[in-house]
Each structure stands twice: as structure tokens, then as C-alpha cells.
Simulated scan of single mutants.
Amino acid sequence: MQEFDHIEAIWAKAKHTVDVKISADEMLKQAKKDVNAMRTKSLLNIVGMALSIFAVAAIWLFLDFNSIFTHLGISIIVFSIAVYTVILYNNHRVISRTDFTENPNIFLQNLKLYQLQRHQLYNKLYWFYAIALSAGMSLYFVEILTNLTPWIQVLILGLSFGWVVLCSTIIRKAVIKRDKERIALLIEKFERISNQFKETE
């Protein structure tokens, strides 16, 4: 057992030594993949939200609604998605406006700002979005559900409520955790890169 612990200690020490000896250029290459993946994911989120606006607006334009509640509900949904899309776009600009290979220190500052904005997005701003979306859907359902049988009404309301709860709890927490870990790891990499550049100067 002692031999195994000794081997494990040597392995950990060797691994740590290798990590420390990675050059700033190599770390920049690794960080480039992570940054590009983060930018791509951010852009896909924005595109998805924009497509949602067009999908809801298409329902509004091509279907004939009589109730003022339905029109009000759809307008609230479109407005809340549009506002959230603008917020996502502003977040995306923070990490896309600086070339990290030219100045890692400025990009590191932007990355920390992005981390703060994402925290606000998933905590304070998310609840405004969820409440506005739920209010819009509730108003939209006033006219839609009256034409359906009671059991279908219950099914639609149950699925909608369940989806909102699922997104607000399990999915939201998983996304926050993954996002937090990814950004923290990237910040750590850029701090190490900045430190290595300072040492070489």
C-alpha cells in the first residue's frame, strides 16, 4: 500500500511539473479552442433566440386571434425574448471584441466582466425573463384553451408549467454550474499566460 501511495505521489509531482512547464504559446493555443467554443456557443444562443422571435411573430401574423389578451400575450412574449436576445448579444460582444492573442491582459479583464454579466443573467435577469414569458403565455392561453376539451387544457397547462419549473430549476442550475466552471478555467489559463509574459519581460 505504501508503494502505491509513493507511486501516486511521484505521478502527481510529475504531472504538476509538466503543467508548469507548458509555454505561454501552448497555453494560448489551448485557450484559443476554449474561447472559440465559448464564442460559438454564445452566437448559437443568440441565433436560437432570434429564431424564437420570428417563430412567435409568425404565429401572430398567420393565425387569426380575436381576443385582446392573445395579442397582448404574444406581444409580451416577443418583447421579453427580444430584450433577452439584446442582453445575450451585449454579453457576446464583451468576449468577441478583443483579440486575446494580441493582448491577453485586456481579454482577461473582458472575461472577468463577461463572468459577472453571466452571473447577473442567470440570477436576477433570468427571473424577469421567466416571469414575463409566463405572463405572456398565460394571456395567450386565455383564447387558445377555451376552444379545447378540459383534459387537453389541463395537459397543456401542466406541460407548460412543468417546462417552466424544469427550466428554472434543474436545467438552469446545470447551465450555471457548467458555465461558471468553463469561464473560471479560462480565467485561470489567461492569468497563467499573463504571469508567464510578465516573467519573460
Rank of each mutant, 00 (worst) to 15 (best):
Y126A: 10
A184E: 12
V94C: 00
L72A: 14
Y129F: 15
A132F: 07
E188C: 01
T101L: 14
L166I: 07
A135F: 13
S168V: 02
S194R: 04
L133R: 04
I76E: 06
E8K: 15
I171S: 09
H71D: 11
S134M: 09
G162F: 01
L148R: 08
I193G: 05
I81G: 09
L108W: 02
M27P: 00
I76Y: 05
W151M: 10
Q117Y: 12
F107S: 03
F62L: 14
V35P: 03
E188K: 14
K32A: 15
I170A: 12
A132I: 01
E201G: 15
V164S: 07
F190N: 06
E191A: 06
L44K: 09
L145W: 00
N195S: 14
L159Y: 03
E26N: 10
C167V: 05
I76D: 02
I176S: 07
S96N: 11
Y129W: 04
N147G: 07
D99S: 11
I95F: 01
L108R: 05
I170D: 09
E3C: 00
C167S: 11
Y89E: 05
D99L: 10
V86I: 14
A82P: 07
K32V: 03
I156G: 02
S75M: 11
H92D: 08
F4V: 15
F141D: 08
L28N: 08
S75C: 08
D19L: 13
I193Q: 05
L61E: 11
F79V: 06
S42P: 02
L125T: 07
S168N: 13
R39D: 02
K173Y: 11
P104F: 00
F62N: 08
Y84F: 13
L28D: 07
L111H: 06
Y84C: 04
I22D: 02
V86S: 02
I68L: 11
L72V: 08
Y129M: 00
K173G: 00
Q117M: 14
K15C: 09
L61V: 11
A50F: 04
N195L: 14
L51P: 01
I87F: 11
Q115V: 01
I81F: 08
I76V: 12
V165L: 15
S96C: 10
K21F: 13
F100C: 00
A24T: 09
F107N: 03
V175H: 11
I152E: 10
L72M: 10
Q120A: 08
A37I: 00
L145P: 01
P150C: 06
H16Q: 12
E3A: 10
A24V: 06
A24I: 02
F54C: 14
